[in-house]
């Protein structure tokens, strides 16, 4: 169910910048709009909105969540086949396939190489066909 942005929106553009599927449009200082055909209900916009102006698919207002508390993907490197599906879903480019550790190394896997860019959308976990990714809170 697609999310919705209310008139409380102040047009700070934080949601548009973090939406993993570019589903939010709007000019600075103007109310933003969610593309209902594209929204994947990941909840990132809700977590990032400073004004609680986002309603989830059921109409409940979303609570903002501080960045350090956003979940991040943990890859089970033994299960991961490096098929790249998670990488192509990750608009933040936080994930990549690891580089070989020696010449001829073919046992590479998905890795969170830019954890600071991750917005915690869970699209990687959702779309991994082998269930090799689990979103988890990072205990600093």
């Amino acid at each position: 169910m697609p999310y919705f942005i209310t008139e409380d929106c102040i047009g700070c553009t934080a949601c548009a910048k973090t939406c993993p599927v570019l589903a939010i449009t709007g000019a600075a200082k103007e109310r933003h709009v969610v593309n209902i055909r594209r929204c994947v209900s990941c909840g990132v916009c809700g977590r990032v909105c400073p004004k609680n102006a986002v309603l989830d698919g059921h109409g409940n207002p979303c609570q903002s969540v501080p960045r350090p508390k956003w979940k991040k993907p943990v890859v089970d490197t033994a299960r991961c086949s490096a098929c790249g599906i998670c990488v192509t879903w990750c608009r933040a480019e936080a994930l990549r396939i690891s580089f070989p550790t020696f010449r001829g190394d073919i046992h590479v896997f998905a890795e969170l190489y830019q954890p600071n860019k991750c917005v915690g959308c869970s699209l990687c976990e959702e779309n991994c066909p082998l269930g090799a990714i689990r979103m988890a809170e990072v205990i600093a």
Partner: peptide, 18 residues
């Protein structure tokens, strides 16, 4: 090719063969 020029292997999306 593998000895002298290869950096790494890569894949089409959704492929474990790479």
């Amino acid at each position: 090719l593998a000895d002298k020029y290869l950096l790494r292997n890569s894949s089409c999306i959704s492929c474990p063969i790479r």
